[in-house]
């Protein structure tokens, strides 16, 4: 039996990897958050100037939402069942039925409608993942992995968050495993997952994905005007930094978490080359933080706005990631 009391909340750095590692752990297979990210090949970079969010282009340091939910199915032999709903009533009834049957259930929500979030972080971002593990009166018991402790959310608020509309509308999405995860053949699964990431970072068919996306965004930053339109330029670079995700990955944009995955991979496969590359990726994460700091100083006018200087930092990041993933490619062979 899975009663609410035997679910254990664990603080994580990112919502989807946090929820998925919690689900897998709950159903019997110890799995770290970085391993969930790495096995699902969920690290990436994408710059889609034609998709606008609040007037600014889509920038992501990872694969699209649901990549981890889907990506863990094959390596862990785990069938994830996903359901969306036409109406909030049906969505709520199904969630209640699953919880009463003892399941833990992943939910896609909009941050804006979750009252337990700090007000400054409540933007209309529709792909935030939380885990429901029980209910108590009108409250749902939620494990939101980016919070230190479990939280509660009233049913009306949760319904709003699950049925928010707009870009990436969740449509009440809930997900749970059918059956139990099995321990993968690490010798096979880890190199396969790394090779997929290498392919995305180095050889994506579009020049907007992977390291070429970093180069492309550098070009856009270089052209940002410093004169009268500087406020708009600052919003653009601020957006680049925000997408490294404040509740999330602390400037390193998933690079530190992937480094931790490589370190774990080095141990599991007894391949010290991965640990060396993890060290380099930590330094690349530091480079992303350096970019964030330089941008923040310009936004607050501690330094004059200098697009070419920020572009140079981004190009350097692109170059270093190109080298790292090339070496990682060789290390898996």
């Amino acid at each position: 039996m899975n009663t609410p009391s035997d679910f254990r909340h664990q603080h994580a750095s990112h919502c989807e990897s946090g929820v998925m590692s919690a689900i897998v752990r709950h159903y019997g297979l110890p799995l770290s958050e970085p391993m969930a990210l790495g096995l699902a090949s969920a690290i990436s970079f994408a710059y889609l100037p034609f998709v606008k969010l609040g007037g600014l282009p889509l920038v992501a340091y990872r694969m699209p939402p649901r990549a981890i939910i889907r990506g863990l199915q094959k390596p862990l032999g785990l069938k994830m069942r996903t359901e969306t709903f036409r109406s909030a009533e049906k969505g709520r009834a199904r969630l209640d039925a699953l919880l009463d049957a003892g399941q833990v259930v992943g939910l896609q929500t909009s941050v804006f409608w979750l009252p337990y979030f700090p007000p400054d972080l409540r933007f209309h971002f529709n792909a935030h993942n939380v885990l429901a593990y029980g209910r108590d009166g009108d409250d749902y018991l939620l494990s939101d992995p980016v919070f230190e402790e479990p939280v509660r959310c009233a049913s009306a608020d949760l319904a709003r968050a699950r049925f928010a509309r707009g870009v990436l509308a969740p449509k009440g999405l809930l997900y749970y495993p059918e059956g139990r995860p099995v321990e993968p053949d690490w010798q096979q699964a880890i190199p396969a997952a790394i090779r997929k990431t290498v392919r995305i970072m180095l050889r994506a068919p579009l020049p907007l994905i992977g390291v070429r996306g970093v180069e492309r965004v550098a070009r856009a930053v270089e052209r940002l005007p410093a004169g009268e339109q500087v406020a708009q330029s600052k919003l653009f670079v601020g957006h680049l930094v925000r997408m490294q995700e404040e509740i999330g990955t602390g400037g390193g944009g998933f690079r530190y978490m992937y480094a931790s995955f490589l370190e774990e991979a080095a141990d599991r496969l007894a391949r010290p080359a991965f640990a060396d590359l993890a060290g380099e990726l930590v330094e690349i994460g530091d480079g992303w933080r350096e970019f964030a700091l330089a941008a923040a100083r310009m936004i607050r006018d501690r330094d004059p706005f200098d697009g070419p200087r920020l572009a140079a930092l981004l190009r350097h990041q692109g170059q270093r990631e190109r080298e790292l993933f090339t070496r990682l490619d060789h290390a898996t062979r």
Binding site: S13, P118, L121, V146, I247, G250, S260
Partner: peptide
Amino acid sequence: LGGQRKAMYARGADGRIGIVASQGWEAE
């Protein structure tokens, strides 16, 4: 962050990368 701490991955004293709770960073 409204008093919340966020989880970050960083290299600990034992040389391993793991989660450290952060009270935030001014740049963010």
